[in-house]
Design a protein around this nucleic acid. Structure first.
Lengths: 209, 209, 209, 209
DNA sequence: TTTTAACCGAGACGGTACGTCCGGTCTTCAC
DNA sequence: GTGAAGACCGGACGTACCGTCTCGGTTAAAA
């Protein structure tokens, strides 16, 4: 991951590289057991076998730490090639739902999003580490669908960006809302119904199966 | 709103009705200025001109208080009859986006959702006070569209419930994600694009305007 | 006991006489179990089967209540006629020590004395209810000793008052200090030694038995 | 004074030595202005320019803090050599009375004694820090008097301890009672009378001057 | 017999202190 | 210079009690 506090010195005892991983893992562990609001840096430091000072040297605070800890979770997402746009969407949405079913992702993600409403830098960090990083999935899926002829080609790069953003908001938003707000599982049945609406629209979806 | 602590006696000094409104208003005010994580009950009590104990007598904690304070915001949503399903959707989505543009809604809503991932009772409270309460909009819009012939009739009540839930997750999720995670405004242009996808599906939407 | 809150009306429902006794008894009971600093008026009211309001109607606060509750304890003191000044002193000192061995007297008495250092009215109440009330014992003992010829007669009333006050301070002070500060029992042996010093003085006491 | 929390490590930031003195001085200042029952630890911390947590790290509570703050007052007592037992007693009793005339001693001392009736550890702390510490005065005065031939020598160490304890209870008790309970000044006249009784006994004292 | 005024219980109210906890900073020693 | 340890200041937490107040209902003396 990128350096979190800008300046780095070349002299003196170098920072333990293992500490970074241990701290992020400890953060996720604490998120599972305690949730965001009861997670304390002293507890994370203790779990990671590290002094509180070490955390503050590497991250500016709890929010930044949790963003990094959560961001790693979403890097596991892969877009499988299942032969059709519908199948590809279903595949990646199920993976996304599986990640959001993990408690460290559930409480961590929403909490930092909530904090980011009042913190420009945190918002940027979330976009860079999580949101923009995963738009690759939409781009790749769209390319495949265009190659297969399931979607028309699009030449205007600005319009492309708008479309990708829109699709990402619809897909990610629906899964997050289903999982965290409605608090119902995004299981296979729901994913099928969602994909149908996404591809065919309301009229097409509620019509004949 | 409904009484928060169930049992009420007819004896003793009755609770001040004015205090409730003052406290919820103060909570929203503090959310605007401080955000959720820096909002403290002692500050809310001070702003409301009320003792801290009065808060604890009526709400179990910060989370429950914020849920009630935020829930009131969404009661202002109305479904305008603009003559077509697309126009109706655009109208209500713009209202929803306007509410989510207010800082008290932004940080408050996501924060309690994050907390609810580890608190069953809080999750129920959110569903009862916010989510289920606003599903009326989907139900009403769907009825109108069916009356207009824009959507086919649906007789199975269970399938109806599934469809309503799905649509709610897609609409609310997309707007929330656009507004809070992508942190871009859900302006008229975006709402038009979203409504197009919702009604026509991906293939229909990205095709000819 | 005297009325504690000055004004009384002659009309309307009269105050329950039983409540007074119940409250004072409950106060002593709470002193035994909790001590002065953890004694709360709510708890006293509850033990006495009375509302908190009732306490505040009759006493100005915790201090006044405890003074009245403790004062009753010392009214049981009697001066036995044992035939000699030494025997009389020993008898009454043992009674006094027995009262000070009771936990409600121990913590209650010292606490209100401590409070009285910053409360003129409370000091007066203590003197009236406890101190001056028990000086009768010194006066009576002195009269008997003079009648027996153990002590010379004293005609000057002012000098008499000074002497009585001094003896009272020496006797009461020594027993209180032994019991509460040194925290050793004022048993028969100690009382004999003390009486010997009181009657004969240091030189006489430490000399031949 | 001695370290209050036994174990100390050699690692970590050491405790500020200046804080101890500032806290004890602030405690005495607050005792003067507020008395024991209205003294709050948050106020003491504020006066001492110290965080509340620092107090709780070093003392278990209000009682222990006040004992230490008051104990320092009595360390100023000195036994002047005035040439006779009577003069020595008068001298030290006047000093003692002067200390008890200070408001921080008045309310502090009696309050902790009252609390100690329900707290074994506190009682021990008082004995160690205040009572036993000042018995040196009795011992020294007695030695001088014996050297002068005013008092007979005493060889049995157990009998000596009993006598010292008794004299201490009589002297300290009488002054405390005069000052705090009777609430009259222990001025020179009273001290002369008291010393006369102490040395000569009741019969000798009330007889010819 | 009816007033009627003071009583009583219950409990909410504005305050305030409690003792604990955490966030961030600092100071010290060891590596 | 890094890292561990832990004391430091500041301040919110949720609880408890204070003393006041507002109720509805009771009760005994005055009319």
């Amino acid at each position: 991951m990128q350096s979190r506090i800008p300046a780095r010195r070349a002299t003196g005892r170098p920072r333990s590289a293992a500490a970074d991983a241990a701290i992020l893992a400890a953060t996720r562990e604490a998120l599972v057991e305690l949730g965001w609001s009861k997670l304390t840096l002293v507890d994370v430091a203790c779990r990671a076998g590290v002094a509180k000072t070490t955390l503050y040297r590497r991250w500016a605070g709890k929010n930044e730490l949790v963003v990094d800890a959560v961001a790693e979770l979403f890097d596991a997402l892969r877009l499988p090639d299942r032969g059709s746009l519908a199948a590809d969407v279903e595949g990646v949405v199920l993976q996304f739902a599986a990640i959001l079913a993990r408690p460290e992702a559930r409480s961590g993600l929403m909490a930092v999003v909530a904090e980011s409403t009042r913190d420009e830098a945190l918002r940027d960090r979330i976009r860079a580490s999580i949101v923009d990083r995963q738009k690759r999935l939409v781009l790749e899926g769209r390319s495949r669908a265009q190659a297969r002829g399931e979607l028309p080609a699009e030449t205007d790069p600005e319009a492309t960006a708008r479309t990708v953003d829109l699709i990402f908001d619809v897909v990610a938003g629906a899964v997050v809302h289903r999982t965290l707000v409605s608090a119902e599982p995004a299981d296979e049945e729901w994913v099928r119904g969602f994909t149908r609406v996404l591809l065919l629209g309301l009229a097409g979806a509620v019509g004949p199966a």
